[in-house]
Computed example of a mutant assay.
Amino acid sequence: MKFLDRLSLDSSTDARVIRRAYARELKLINQEAEPAAFQSLREAYEAALRWIEEGAQELPEPIQEHGPKEGALAQLHGLQSLEHARQALHQLRPVNLADSETFEAAVAALLDEGWRPGHEYLFPAACEIFYWDGRRLPAYLDDFDALAGAIEDLKFLRMQPEEARTNHTRVIDCLRDTGMPGLADLARDILIAEFVSTRYPDLTYLTCAPRKVEQWRKHMSQLVAQVKAQETGRLEETESRSLELLRWFGLAWVVAWIYLGATDFRILRKKEPLRQLTVMEMQWITKNVEPIRVERPVEYEVSLSESGDISGLDLVESQDGAAVSGVADAIRIAAPYPAEYPRVFRVRFPI
């Protein structure tokens, strides 16, 4: 019989052995990569169970090797809510005890195959309707190790403190989402996702998309690399601007020193308050020269060095704006000036 051969069984088998054989063969198939092989195994499993239930000694209808078969379990795919899952199980569950156990085992096998869209609703609904989380699993479910582990994981999750339970449940829900969270959400949830996948391995296997945590981790690494690249770019731009400002500052500093050197640092010197010389002080200028006759008023600003010599002589005021050479010469001849004279003063003629 082809369906028994597919399960590596002989005609002396029973329902329990068939379920174990199905679970064993199922683990050898990648359902996403080998849909035809999975469909063949599923049809062989269902045909074997029918053969046992009917007690038939003849071969049932030949197994169709191609094309999916529409059956009761097809209604359990793509469930949209927990209430939807409850209603589907109630409607499909047979009244007869033996048939009900067979249906329960078929649902367990479907869940034990791993996550599909809608299993997040099918699993808690099945736990509720079949009392999986409130009793020891019956013998006909012994071979479904992932299901048994998921039931224990669910019990442990419900025992967690409210805050931890809320966070774990939220992250498990996110692990079913086909999209990827943003960097902020990943940074907040990645450690929780790592913990959830480690602490509830069978529960996430049954109710979450496979390898989702690895995808999160890879996506976060990519986002962090992008952020680092942007930060590096901004840092390089800032450093470039800083170097440019530093170059301009250095150039300004050099220009300032050149200017100060050219002006003999006059700008940095402490400017003494100007004072008009008294008549007696002005007589110092005329003592070595003939009395100065000035036809028009004239005033000079005189700057002295520390030794009393003249370092600057500037015409400040004149009636017609012209210098009076005789006055300027007399001021120069009077140098060096006594120390009591101010270093900057004004002198006006006529006295």
Rank of each mutant, 00 (worst) to 15 (best):
W216E: 05
D314Y: 06
L243D: 04
D309W: 13
A15C: 08
M180T: 05
D314C: 05
T278P: 08
R93C: 09
I331L: 12
L246D: 06
A33K: 14
V17S: 13
L183N: 04
L246K: 14
W253G: 14
H119M: 02
L41A: 02
T166A: 12
Y22N: 01
A262L: 09
E231S: 07
I129F: 10
F195E: 12
I267N: 09
Y200H: 08
F156T: 07
Q39N: 04
T238K: 15
S100F: 05
A108R: 06
E104N: 02
Y121S: 01
D173H: 14
D185W: 07
E317S: 15
T204A: 03
A47R: 13
L175V: 02
E236T: 08
R269A: 06
I267L: 13
H66K: 10
K155R: 15
L154H: 10
P161N: 12
R266C: 00
L28M: 09
E101V: 07
Q226T: 07
A105Q: 06
L26R: 14
V316E: 06
S240M: 11
K212I: 02
A262I: 00
F130K: 05
R42H: 06
G250W: 00
L28H: 08
A105E: 03
R135C: 04
I190E: 04
K270S: 08
S12C: 06
N96H: 13
R176A: 01
S305L: 10
L304I: 06
V344I: 11
L246M: 11
D264L: 09
R199T: 07
K287N: 11
L203C: 01
Q80K: 15
P181S: 04
R158H: 14
E120C: 02
C208L: 03
R136N: 07
W257I: 07
E120P: 09
L92G: 01
V255G: 03
P117Q: 10
S325L: 14
R16W: 10
L122M: 05
A15Y: 02
A148G: 10
A334P: 15
R135E: 11
F265Y: 15
Y337W: 03
I172T: 00
L7F: 06
M1Y: 01
T166I: 05
A335C: 10
I333P: 09
H168P: 00
A164C: 00
R93A: 10
